[in-house]
Design a protein around this nucleic acid. Sequence first.
DNA 1: CGATTGTTTTCAGTAATACTGATAAAAATA
DNA 2: TATTTTTATCAGTATTACTGAAAACAATCG
Lengths: 299, 299
Amino acid sequence: MKITLRQMEIFLEVAKIGHLTQVANDLGLSQSAVSMSIKELECILGCKLFDRIQKKLVLNEKGRAFMHAIEPLIKKLRDIEEEFMSQENKGELTIGASTTIADYIMPHIICEYMEKYPDVKISMKIGNTEEIAKLVEDGQVDLGYIEGEIQNFNLIMSPIGVDELIIVTGDKDLVRKKEYYIDNLLDYKWILREEGSGTRSVFLNKIKNHVTGLNLFLDLRHTEAIKSVLKETKGTLSCISKIAVSRNIECKELYQLKLKGFDFTREFFQIHHKDKYKSELFKKFSVFARYRFSEILNK
Amino acid sequence: MKITLRQMEIFLEVAKIGHLTQVANDLGLSQSAVSMSIKELECILGCKLFDRIQKKLVLNEKGRAFMHAIEPLIKKLRDIEEEFMSQENKGELTIGASTTIADYIMPHIICEYMEKYPDVKISMKIGNTEEIAKLVEDGQVDLGYIEGEIQNFNLIMSPIGVDELIIVTGDKDLVRKKEYYIDNLLDYKWILREEGSGTRSVFLNKIKNHVTGLNLFLDLRHTEAIKSVLKETKGTLSCISKIAVSRNIECKELYQLKLKGFDFTREFFQIHHKDKYKSELFKKFSVFARYRFSEILNK
DNA sequence: CGATTGTTTTCAGTAATACTGATAAAAATA
DNA sequence: TATTTTTATCAGTATTACTGAAAACAATCG
């Protein structure tokens, strides 16, 4: 036998008011219902909570302790109930994003969104495209943002913007030439993201039909790590997302090399599960993210 | 329509496990009961809490937020329930005490008791004998400790110790004589507790048949205030409870004057309402207090 | 003092609800 | 396509919560 919320609410009311009859009226119940409810509660707890003193029920030491223990909890519970029934833009969204997006795009979007809707909590999981797809498929995250196409009929994917990969270096000497042919760059020290990364595979797939013998100098898991190597080591090159380096190019820490005959563009996708129930929160964030994505990528 | 504890518990279990069938087994319910309970909950809140994704129910953004909101509260509630069912010496006792007792006896007793039973909370209300009796009669306090007899057939009073009032002064010159007759003291400056105080009425009642013309110099509401006047002003006298001044007499800040032919003793009483349900807590404290009272008064 | 009022308690009956068991539907697995 | 596994639905049942009337009790009034 367990105590119910109802019993506790009736108890609190009786504790406050002290007259069963009045409580019954207040709660729209018969007086006997209130009496029985209190009796039941005392029975479950195995102790009296009130002393019946001259027509009034007054809390005894146990009842007093019980009231102080449960009152704030019951109030909070009912507040929460109200809150959720009021259907506001409230909730805890989890999204997943692959590395480049997670590093250079999502943080802005999440920040802005949470500023706009302070009641929404957003947490982000990071992984490569496949990992994110898996999370979305299992329902672990509500929305995914990935860098490459995938085949999965449980997932609905929609393109949300075009990203451009560019060749960058920190070596000023390399900037003298206005354009390069890929063959002239093969012997420099190439630094790419690790195997399995979308950025890496796009680059290698595009050039593989044209060249062999790329001098693959180093694999790094983080774009920021690549950038710092580029800055410090002469003769190093990489192919990374334009948005990841635009800042560095602006302030001339890094330089873009024009490559003739290649176009390293790829699409970003938003994905969600086909069975996903689209709450207001979900829809709002989804729309917001798309909009901001296009702004960020086109600037 | 309101959410019940049951629904929330089932919800939390489903949120944790993800399979209705398994939850049904765990909770000893039919699978349909669980299914309906969740449905009902979603209906009351007016929003879906789960996405039905590949045989599993996984929380969506709303459900996640709801879970995080209610989980700690539900756990606490059930803990409290357990706690009260376990019938330990737990509770919030309120006692009332009249001034002298409240100042010089109860604090020790309450301290000791709470040290012994840390789960018991005790609060004390202070008033004169009549006020305390009223509080006990109304059930506002569980136990009363008073300094004088009262007539109230709702209250059960039992003597718990004899207190002696003594004549004290801070004036060394007065100590020379070994004994006084009351008539020789009438002209000194008498300082008594205020009208309505038990201490005052005991003294005045006892002497009123023998003397008139007491030089009533000052009324004060607090014994400590009286004591400090006695110490500072020559020729002042008072009649106060022995226990209130025993310390001061020991260290010779104040002096007791022997008065021939008078015996200012009075009894302390413990009172409680006749309809009071005597919980373990009540009984234990009551016994403890009696015991300590006699110790303190007889030392 | 008995009658009256205002209250709580008790109890039988009823309304509401929570749950069951069977069956249908949906999805994954073979 | 059949089989298995799971959830959803529904009608019926068991349980619980509540009502209304009567009984019990205490305070108040004439």
